[in-house]
Amino acid sequence: MSDHRLSSIELDAASLPAATAEIEHERRVAIFDLVEKNSFEPVGAERGPYALKMSSQDGRLVFDVTGPGFSKAHGLSMSPLNKIIKDYIEICDSYYEVLRGTDVGKIEAVDMGRRGLHNEGAEVLQTRLDGKIGIDHETARRLFTLVTALYRR
């Protein structure tokens, strides 16, 4: 396993939107999945593993990364992600509704849309972190899942 990985993630609950029990569960699952498998290489860091603390400050999502001999915080404007997150949450809600039905074609269509938005969100996140933190596509997808859970109401 590479040293360039996240070994822990902490959320600053005081700076993030309040969460219901269901959303707290989503956040815990997203953190578990991300820590379980990821590729995370902050620019300028020689080796990991890294700890990530996520918070919201002045409308920005802050990634505070620490590792052996390394500490750096990066703030990302949420503006480029807001519409994708909103659309992704809406299509996920639709997906769960459609699953209750029996129309396989409709389920597949909504699922394709859901996966497409998930990939789009991951790509935007990967681009926003470019030059700050190197992540692969799968890590970007897992990180987008967590970011969505952070802003879900």
Rank of each mutant, 00 (worst) to 15 (best):
I135V: 15
L125C: 04
K132M: 14
A122M: 07
G75P: 01
L34S: 00
D136I: 09
L81A: 05
I91K: 10
P49R: 05
M112V: 13
V35F: 02
V43N: 09
G131M: 05
A122Q: 03
F63C: 04
T66M: 06
R47W: 11
L117G: 05
F63W: 06
D58K: 15
A45K: 01
G59E: 07
R114M: 12
L129T: 02
V35H: 01
K83F: 05
M112G: 10
K53Q: 06
R60M: 08
D130A: 13
K86T: 14
I135P: 01
S39K: 11
K53L: 13
A30I: 04
T127V: 14
Q126Y: 08
T102P: 01
M78V: 09
G44Q: 12
D93M: 15
E90V: 09
M78A: 04
I91V: 15
T139H: 02
A109Y: 03
V98L: 10
T102Y: 03
D130W: 09
E120F: 09
L125N: 00
E41N: 13
S56W: 12
E90H: 15
K132E: 05
D87S: 12
A51Q: 04
A51G: 13
S39R: 10
S39G: 15
L99R: 12
P80L: 09
D93W: 08
V35A: 00
L76C: 05
D111N: 10
A45H: 00
D103L: 07
H137L: 14
T66V: 09
S56C: 14
M54R: 06
K83M: 08
L99W: 10
I31D: 00
G101C: 03
D87I: 04
G69S: 13
E41Y: 07
E123I: 13
T139P: 02
F40I: 01
K86S: 15
K53R: 15
V65D: 00
Q57F: 15
Y96G: 11
S94H: 14
Q57D: 12
R141N: 10
E41C: 05
E120W: 12
P68N: 08
P49F: 04
Q126I: 07
R60H: 15
D93F: 11
L117I: 14
Q57S: 14
R142G: 01
L125P: 00
L81R: 02
E90C: 10
G75D: 01
L143I: 01
P68E: 07
T102A: 06
L76A: 04
A73D: 05
I89Q: 08
M78Q: 07
A122K: 00
E90D: 13
V62L: 11
K132Q: 07
Y96E: 14
D64H: 02
R60N: 11
C92P: 03
D87C: 08
K106R: 14
G69V: 05
A73L: 03
Y95R: 13
D136F: 04
Y96H: 15
D130P: 05
G134Q: 12
G75Y: 00
K86H: 11
E120S: 15
I91F: 10
N82L: 11
E36H: 10
P49S: 02
P49Y: 09
L143T: 04
